[in-house]
Simulated assay, not measured.
Amino acid sequence: MSDPTTDLSYTQAMKRLRHRRWFLWGIILIYVPVIWLSLRVTGSDRATAIVFAVWLLLVCVAVVRAAFALCPRCGNTFHMNGFVPLYLRQCVHCQLHITEDSLPAEEADTEEETSP
């Protein structure tokens, strides 16, 4: 049987990873509506350029946060293999799926044996 704190930290790490991915895709999806709204409300290209610059900054932050998120199973970056981020639904190193919230039984047993 696995330690509840280990399962909790594993679950929290997966939740944090999914949150970072949702933030990235959410920022990408709001681009067109935000730019359109900025043009309609202000009618100014300069104000829209400022909105675009803020959006671009948010995208850069979201990309870096998602790309360098660590996999709770193997400890490597979840989305990066080398210099290229691959935003797949599984770890590029150990193939852990993004929706797996608990340790597999064999890993839980191994952690229990190594824990003092």
Rank of each mutant, 00 (worst) to 15 (best):
Cys91Asp: 00
Val84Ala: 04
Val59Ile: 15
Leu29Arg: 10
Leu88Ser: 11
Phe78Lys: 05
Gly43Gln: 05
Ala105Leu: 15
Arg46Ile: 13
Ile98Glu: 14
Ala108His: 03
Ser38Pro: 07
Lys15Leu: 09
Pro85Tyr: 10
Ala69Gly: 09
Glu111Cys: 01
Cys60Lys: 02
Arg73Val: 05
Thr42Gln: 01
Cys74Ser: 00
Ile98Trp: 11
Leu96His: 02
Met1Asp: 14
Phe68Thr: 15
Ala105Met: 14
Trp36Thr: 15
Pro33Ile: 03
Gly75Thr: 03
Pro116Asp: 10
Glu112Gly: 05
Leu103Ala: 04
Phe52Arg: 07
Val61Ser: 07
Ser102Trp: 08
Asn76Gly: 03
Tyr10Cys: 01
Leu17Ser: 12
Pro104Val: 09
Gly26Met: 02
Trp36Met: 11
Ser44His: 02
Phe52Thr: 08
Glu112Ser: 10
Asn76Pro: 00
Asn81Val: 08
Leu70Glu: 06
Val41Ser: 12
Pro116His: 09
Ser38Trp: 08
Ser102Lys: 11
Met80Gly: 06
Thr114Arg: 15
Ile27Gln: 05
Gln95Cys: 01
Ser38Ala: 14
Gln90Asn: 14
Glu100Val: 06
Thr5Pro: 01
Val92Pro: 08
Thr114Met: 10
Arg18Asn: 10
Leu17Val: 04
Ala105Asp: 15
Pro72Arg: 04
His19Glu: 10
Ser44Thr: 07
Arg89Leu: 15
Leu37Phe: 07
Pro85His: 04
Cys94Val: 11
His93Val: 02
His97Pro: 00
Val34Arg: 05
Ser9Gly: 00
Ile35Gln: 05
Pro104Tyr: 07
Asp101Ala: 01
Ala62Met: 03
Tyr10His: 15
Arg40Gln: 09
Asp45His: 04
Thr110His: 10
Ala105Cys: 08
Arg65Leu: 12
Ser38Gly: 13
Gly43Lys: 03
Leu29Gly: 14
Leu103Met: 13
Trp55Ala: 02
